[in-house]
């Protein structure tokens, strides 16, 4: 592999924040060995950071240490490097030692968000979810606009089956990024899991509404990607709404025309799966299920 193409690829990885660690590491090694650091100029430092992270990811600590050494020589005392050193320590040292390291640094600089997040991730990793949640809530109380932070909180609540709290955090995500249908889908699925079927149904419909908003004749299109998931959700919700007496903890009104939606969802899902090969096991199973319920 030649140097220019490796550099090119690495810079796109950097720009897009891709975590393709093995590839980054292989290409980074080419650059490091091929004396590419001089060619990079000022960019070489962000390259070294990228390579260090990738090397830690793939377990080549010798390379990571070399990168960190180069960076430390250039920027002694940089808070961004403190974070990198912390990640390096997480590999080899005990969680308690790493937490101590992060705690000490955070005491000196309480607003270093990157360090704070590392600390929370360590807490989560060693199973101290309650502390992690408490810290994360404090972080989000200060830095409200951090969508990733909110999503992490959502995930943590889900992991301990606190679906109502999870929904509440997700509502903040929706406020911060109202244009993203994936978040709405997640909201719908979490609401379904929490047992709030009317809310889930409405949210699934919102996803469909967002996804087709700029299509002229959505009925003729075959649903794809996350809309298939949303149609499955609508189908499920419609089935349950017809069969059971459902109450909504969030006092969402039961959607109208449930019968119609049941038919519509079945029809949409059939358009997805009916066209597939007979040998496609997934498709036959789905079609059987649709015929059954």
């Amino acid at each position: 592999m030649d140097l220019p193409s490796a550099l090119q690829k690495l810079s796109t990885f950097r720009a897009r924040n891709t975590r393709a660690s093995q590839e980054t590491f292989d290409k980074g090694l080419v650059v490091l060995k091929g004396n590419g650091l001089k060619k990079l100029g000022d960019e070489s430092w962000s390259f070294l950071e990228q390579l260090a992270l990738a090397a830690i990811d793939v377990g080549r600590l010798d390379i990571a240490d070399r990168c960190l050494q180069l960076l430390t020589d250039k920027f002694p005392g940089s808070p961004r490097l403190d974070c990198l050193h912390g990640i390096r320590k997480e590999v080899t040292e005990s969680p308690a030692a790493v937490l101590l390291y992060y705690g000490k640094l955070l005491q000196a600089d309480p607003v270093n968000v990157a360090l704070w997040k590392r600390k929370i991730s360590v807490l989560r990793r060693i199973g101290r979810i309650d502390e992690a949640v408490a810290e994360l809530i404090e972080l989000l109380d200060t830095f409200y606009t951090d969508v990733e932070g909110w999503l992490e909180l959502v995930d943590m609540y889900c992991s301990v089956h606190q679906y109502i709290s999870s929904l509440q955090s997700l509502s903040h995500v929706l406020l911060l990024a109202p244009q993203n249908p994936f978040h709405v889908l997640r909201f719908a699925e979490t609401a379904y899991t929490a047992g709030d079927i009317p809310l889930a149904m409405k949210s699934f419909l919102n996803v469909i509404d967002m996804a087709d908003a700029d299509e002229d004749a959505p009925a003729e299109q075959v649903p794809s990607g996350f809309t298939i998931r949303a149609w499955f959700g609508i189908k499920q919700c419609a089935c349950r709404l017809q069969r059971e007496r459902i109450t909504s903890p969030s006092q969402t009104a039961v959607p109208e025309h449930v019968q119609l939606f049941d038919e519509l969802a079945t029809e949409r899902l059939k358009t997805v799966y009916a066209g597939r090969d007979k040998s496609d096991k997934e498709a036959t199973e789905v079609l059987e299920w649709l015929a059954r319920v």
Binding site: K202, L205, H257
Partner: peptide
């Protein structure tokens, strides 16, 4: 709420209403 009358919107778009 954006989902207040989302049922009608979706159904109309699919020609069910």
């Amino acid at each position: 709420w954006v989902g207040k009358d989302v049922e009608q919107r979706v159904l109309r778009r699919y020609g069910k209403l």
